[in-house]
Amino acid sequence: MTFLERNFLDIRNLDLMARGDSWPHRLDPRVKVLTTMIFIITVVSMDKYSISQLIPFAVFPVSLLAASGLPPGYFLKKILLVSPFALMVGLFNPLLDQTILLHIGSLGISGGWISLVSIMLRFTLTVGAALILIGITSFNGICLALEKFRVPKVFVVQLLFLYRYIFVLLDEASRMSRARSLRSLDIKGPGIKTFGSMAGNLLLRATGRAERIHLAMLCRGFDGNIHTMNSSSLYLKDILFLLGWTVVFYLLRTYNFPELIGNGVLNFT
């Protein structure tokens, strides 16, 4: 298996997880999407040097993981896989921002390092929450929720189709790259020429398939509207979930609990 296959086909496992049956799974998709959105916005809105105040936010993803019984290791691996992107964002902070903000013994820690750590923390929290959201809701559930939030249908349908056919396309791409590597023996990696024609070929195949899918849709009376069967209704527990977490996020945003607790301990002694 190529790197591509191993890591992307693995996304399907998220969908399998979403078929579980725990209380977070059973919540209305809308509520989960909204709560996660509030969570992400709150985390992102924190001050750029905040570290201690960010840590308690982990209570949201961790408690969802615990309640839904999803394997934490899987999510950690996925987060690690995309972490280089976040690292790139903050990589130069330690060089650009050299004001010393903190002293540990005789070691001065600059603002750049602190903001880098803060970026990585935020990244872990938000990406983790988003992945867990898919793991307990399924991608289709999220799309349905978006539709209920009046996101224009075109976008929702695009997302649904993207998710349905990305696997078919990846399959085609990996078959092609396997066929190439089998016939290029010792040569490592495709040359720019081969790569170009492979990409072109893939594009043509994708357009061909899109055409056939459109025909198949027309064949069954498609008129621009996609009707889905799922009807969901909000229950009290859904509302409580949303309100409860919003209050928690608000408190975590306004008060720095680790600092309060630390001060408390200091005053007590």
């Binding site: 991608f139 289709n140 799309c143 649904l160 189709f161 998710y163 349905r164 056919y165 078919v168 398939r209 056939r212 899918i213 025909l215 198949a216 849709m217 027309l218 064949c219 069954r220 009376g221 498609f222 008129d223 509207n225 996609i226 009707h227 889905t228 069967m229």
Partner: peptide, 30 residues
């Protein structure tokens, strides 16, 4: 198109909805 049903050569082209039920319902709903 209502009275002529067409089954395509590649079923992947024909099954485009998230679940089997959604897919089979697609025609009747339309």
């Amino acid at each position: 198109r209502r009275s002529v049903g067409m089954v395509f050569q590649d079923p992947d082209d024909q099954l485009f909805m998230p679940t089997v039920l959604d897919d089979v319902c697609f025609g009747p709903l339309n």
